[in-house]
Amino acid sequence: MIVAEQKPIGEILKKLPEVEKLLVLGCDTCVTVCLAGGEKEVKVMCSAIRMADKKIGEVTGFSIERQCDREFFKEIEAVVKESDAILSLACGAGVQMLSDYFEGKLVIPGLNTHFIGSNEGAGYWLERCLGCGDCMLDITGGICPKTRCSKGLMNGPCGGSENGMCEIDPLNTECGWYLIYERLKKLNMLQNMMTNQPPRDWSRAHDGGPRKLLREDIQP
């Protein structure tokens, strides 16, 4: 699922134009599941804007199934027509779909979209996939080296792997290639470690390791 986090409210308030009617639009799929843009967040956001920004005449809240499917926009056409601007609590894809569909309306993003990841427990999300478009998880035992290895190495581990942890953050970040090695051992497929993987085009690389989102207020 796509993992996103709400922008700081101060930043959102700065971005909001002085309009008569504002629509806050939530999305009931990924961003609801990662507690960033569901019905509840919409209500809280509406209240916050009403209290903080006296220049905006009217704030309406609404939430649709998915903002990345244009079919769902039909039900809000009337509400959108009434509004002067939309604050979208959806991922980047949703915000773009919304701007495409309602071309004349200003759409302001309310979230920062982070990554494709998994929910590891209450209030803890972990990046799992880069969306690189060329999956090699069969070779690496179901652990993605591009995402889980901090350096995105295709042939690892490097010399910075110590006790299963990565040198960039030995306390919190696991070595992706160590995980791959352990997994391949269980699968009896260690020969895969010996196959040389060709280099990739990393011109549009991500670096800095798998990104994590930790929300203290949700954690047990």
């Binding site: 009931d28 599941v33 507690l35 929910n119 427990g121 209450a122 949700i218």
Partner: peptide, 12 residues
């Protein structure tokens, strides 16, 4: 109809 099966309740 409203539940998105996000499992937040299961976790908290």
């Amino acid at each position: 109809d409203k539940c998105v099966y996000c499992l937040t309740c299961v976790r908290v």
